[in-house]
């Protein structure tokens, strides 16, 4: 018995040591925002905790598979039924593990994530830039509402492949207020009609929220890294809720620029819109 315990523990330790390398591996797309940093960190914590758990099961299975075969070399005659202390200890340990995971990184992370009651964004991101997002079948429209207290009248209409970008300034909290508009939304008449569900997702920022007809959902992000779709596909708005035929191509390039560049861009756009 003791020798089996030792060898399973060794096997477990070895598998865990190898597995934990994953924690240090770069599994993620570009870290483009504060939100992404937090996501990656929480993901790594969960990985760090999960790998030993999984590998315990694997070690037990592999060892038993190799060493406890009928007719193989083992000390036979074990008949314990698991009515003693072991299940209680197991229950205690797994409960502790579960409660720990719930509290950290679960609820602590959640508290940081929910900076407001109606939508989410991490607590240190305030919305200095406000953008109304309209999702429709199958594209996006971004109405820039406000930047640094100034009202804006800039609007970007983007369909798959037309190259129109969602442009965001570096280190500025952007707040997205998201709506879903009609399938056959006519921007000329602006006749409202029921839309379908979409989901507004930017992989580089690790943030996502659904666009729902009849509701406004919000989310905030603070980009920390310059980038654009041309060089990095993680910089894209991607619809993540099946919304019909062209759901697969409901994406828009995203570009994060410096604050000065952003101002220039705004001015250009404002001119273009007036024309």
């Amino acid at each position: 018995m003791a020798k089996h315990v030792v060898s399973v523990v060794l096997l477990w330790a070895a598998l865990t040591a190898v597995g934990e390398a994953l924690v240090f591996a770069d599994l993620f797309p570009t870290v483009g925002s504060h939100e992404a940093e937090d996501f990656d960190q929480i993901f790594r914590v969960l990985l760090f905790m999960g790998i030993p758990v999984f590998n315990f099961v694997v070690a037990m299975l592999v060892h038993s598979f190799l060493r406890f075969r009928a007719g193989g070399p083992q000390e036979g005659g074990a008949t314990f039924k698991g009515t003693g202390a072991i299940p209680k200890v197991w229950l205690l340990l797994t409960s502790c593990l579960a409660v720990t995971t719930i509290i950290y990184p679960g609820l602590t992370g959640l508290r940081k994530l929910q900076s407001e009651a109606n939508g989410y964004g991490w607590a240190d991101t305030k919305g200095t830039l406000i953008i109304h997002v309209q999702a429709f079948q199958w594209g996006w429209q971004y109405d820039y509402q406000e930047y640094d207290g100034e009202k804006l009248a800039v609007s970007v209409f983007s369909l798959h492949g037309d190259g129109n970008e969602l442009v965001l300034p570096l280190e500025v909290g952007a707040r997205f207020e998201i709506n879903s508009t009609g399938a056959a939304y006519d921007f000329a008449t602006e006749e409202p009609s029921s839309g379908v569900l979409h989901s507004f997702w930017i992989p580089a920022f690790r943030m996502k929220i659904d666009a729902i007809p009849g509701r406004t959902t919000t989310m905030t992000v603070k980009p920390t890294e310059l980038g654009d779709y041309g060089r990095d596909p993680a910089y894209r708005v991607q619809c993540a809720e099946l919304c019909g035929l062209s759901h697969t191509t409901m994406d828009t390039p995203v570009r994060v620029v410096s604050q000065e560049e952003f101002k220039t861009w705004l001015a250009e756009q404002a001119k273009a819109t007036k024309k």
Partner: peptide, 22 residues
């Protein structure tokens, strides 16, 4: 995950020191 863990306990405890017919 707590009740689910008990199912693993039962499975792993059963094969442990058993005579498995694979």
């Amino acid at each position: 995950s707590i009740p689910t863990g008990l199912i693993f306990l039962s499975a792993l405890g059963t094969i442990w020191m058993g005579k498995l017919r694979l």
